[in-house]
Design a protein around this nucleic acid. Structure first.
Lengths: 116, 116
DNA sequence: TGAAGTGCTATACTTTAGTATATCGGTAAC
DNA sequence: GTTACCGATATACTAAAGTATAGCACTTCA
């Protein structure tokens, strides 16, 4: 058993958790979709218009993904015709702090790389 | 000028900063390379061996990338043969807190999705 | 002398993420 | 009665990221 394997294991677990987080955060559209929903857009077409440039195929796919990740909820209302609404979950709220950390680090990083 | 454009602009700037951060963090190897260097590996082959599974081509490319992003420094020593050492910069240290946030959110998220 | 290590680079390939475009069944407005 | 909106889905494509494999100029080590 190599000397560093314990730390190495811990490191691999860390990387897995980081990867879990990144799966949500690092796709091109997921954050934008959540932002659009937070901004009050509930309907498919509203979100599509708010973001601009996303294809319905991507939006459909990412909405499903976000629902599986319990970040948004899809509600179907039995109106004529059926109305569908997407809302963010409380769990999605916990993203706010994280995104803010990413944002501030991103700003700091840009200064470090290009000079103030 | 649409009503929400100010918030929308701020939102787009946020997304840019987040994207800057993600460019560093979300590649398959960059964090692993930095971790390997933090663990005391300074030489190309040491890093390669520590990580395992990375091709020399990727390692070479990512090291250059990390240097451009001022997260590591490449030093050439005029020995026979020349020795090359990679070290992490103080700026790279600022990643630790961020990665830790990603890690803890990742753990929390996994619990939220699969239940405790 | 020849095998193995060092720090790479080149070429070609595969895999994954995202795009473009067309379409669908329903409803409602003109 | 045809045009447009809604919430999508299907098929096919392109671009970006990463992999596989070989090799190079050099230097030890046995």
């Amino acid at each position: 058993m190599p000397v560093n394997s314990k730390e190495h294991d811990a490191c691999k677990k860390s990387l897995l958790a980081v990867k879990d987080a990144l799966d949500v955060i690092s796709s091109k559209w997921k954050l934008q979709i959540i932002f659009a929903i937070w901004a009050g857009n509930k309907r498919f077409k509203d979100i599509e218009r708010q973001i601009g440039g996303i294809s319905p195929r991507m939006l459909s796919k990412e909405l499903k993904d976000l629902e599986e990740h319990k970040l948004i909820v899809r509600k179907v209302y039995d109106t004529q015709p059926v109305t569908i609404e997407y809302t963010a979950t409380p769990h999605a709220e916990t993203l706010k702090e994280l995104v803010d950390k990413l944002r501030t680090w991103g700003i700091k990083h840009r200064k470090a790389v290009f000079g103030k």
